[in-house]
Design a protein around this nucleic acid. Structure first.
Lengths: 99, 99
DNA sequence: ACGAACGGTAAGTCTAGGCTTTCCGAAGCG
DNA sequence: CGCTTCGGAAAGCCTAGACTTACCGTTCGT
């Protein structure tokens, strides 16, 4: 999931799709990599449920998939809560250690 | 930023720190990698402002850094908004899905 | 003051995976 | 029917970076 977004090129694709649905060739046109490379990245993103595809003739239109996006958001919200709690806890206690 | 969280080991460290502050050795004890490896990962996480360290004697206690966490949250919230808008837009168009 | 613990740095190895070229199947158009 | 466009699959190259071991510098305890 976050593995998929760890790659800069995949994030670029992800951000392009955030602006609206696109075909593979259209995505590749805005990126410094070849079309097959984009295809491979889309496969990874699709497996991570971060994007989904729709067949339109010979074209494949890709869109952001809310499922993965919601999952990622949930992941960080979870840590956000924990971090806040840990922070509040640390703010009151003097820097002591516990085990 | 997301590059830092793209690595499984770094995510493991990140999640360990979510439970509470820890020293390097304590982190390494719960991971299948050597202590220097953890040190290297912590440097990356620190550069990404995802964690911060405090010197306590010879020990270095690492904690989650709210700054990076907030940034990541903001990043995905941004796309969440866009995805919702794109979704509402797609709901009106001829819905053709596949796979 | 000496030694031990903690942890960052350096150097080197080795694998994962990102990218390319090549090729092939599928769908539209004349 | 070709022929063209689109995009996924296969094969191979090659670099980034995730590890390791070894080595210091620093700080604390006795």
């Amino acid at each position: 999931m976050l593995d998929a977004l760890g790659d800069p090129t995949r994030r670029a694709i992800f951000e392009l799709l955030a602006a609206g649905p696109r075909s593979v060739a259209e995505i590749a046109a805005d990126l410094p990599v070849s079309r097959p490379a984009v295809s491979q990245h889309l496969k990874v993103l699709k497996d991570a449920t971060l994007v989904s595809s729709t067949a339109v003739g010979t074209r494949r239109v890709y869109t952001l998939d809310p499922h993965g996006l919601a999952a990622v958001r949930g992941y960080f919200d979870q840590f956000w809560q924990q971090a806040l709690a840990a922070f509040a806890h640390a703010a009151e206690n003097p820097p002591e250690e516990e085990q």
